[in-house]
Amino acid sequence: MNAPGLFSQLLEVLIALALAPLLTGWVNQCRAWLLNKSAPPLTQPYRKLHKLFHKELVLAEHASSLYRAVPYLVFGCMALACAIIPTLSTDLPLSPAADAVALVGLFALARVFQSLAAMDVGTAFGTLGARREMLIGFLAEPALLMVLFSASLLSRSTSLTTLVDLFAHRELAIYPSLAFAGVAFTLVSLAENARIPVDNPATHLELTMVHEALLLEYSGRHLALLEWAASLKLFAYSCAGLALFFPWGIADARTPQAMLLALPLLAAKLTLGGALLALLETASAKMRIFRVPEFLGSAFLLAVIGMLVNILLGV
């Protein structure tokens, strides 16, 4: 472990923590524009977090200690995920600790904790949300794994560092299998981040909500942490997508100075990606919960076809 490595590691986590709410704010703003509404300011998520942190914590009377631990655990998992994914530099001391499969495991861990917490209070909506979240999760998780695998088949490695290094620092090549993986990844990210058409982040209509149902009983600093964690998740997914499909500009291990260049580039890519996400969301309608298996099943099968194409073409 060297000093620049440690520095880039810390910088990455801090940047993720700082930028994640901004990304959420940007997507919300774009969405409002597209819907012809007056947009909230870009800093709205920060204000919301600040307000929530200051509010009194209201707990259900029989909530267990698991319930109180979960916001911290979920937040920690998401922060770790942001630390693992190479966003600015591939020289990260933590990256050997977790490869692509472990990253999926990390997301799954956070999801399981959040679902368990939602079941803890024992209201109808909490358990309903937990069930739906796990339903989406068990379909999205293998799809995500297969997306990462089709990239891994190209590089013969599941290490995220090697993957990004390969795609970013080799001569330009087109990988047809990544086309499939890219579509599948988009579908999975929409589902995993509770976006339309799978879930509506802006709804509080009890019967249709998934992610909001999980958070229904949370308040104060717990809610702030979970909201922040949701932003971090969106950030992590966006960065993972960018790292896999548009990796140009990520600094490699030998040139830590390049991180300075990498940051504006990342910001530009995220701005574009967020706008695209808002466009995708406004262009589609929310689907019934039992259409979701079909939706995610397509993602899963597309990723599998991607791997098949890879084996057939050999690239």
Partner: peptide, 9 residues
């Protein structure tokens, strides 16, 4: 190859 993949997609 990419176009072929898109066709299949």
């Amino acid at each position: 190859n990419l176009l072929a993949a898109i066709l299949l997609l």
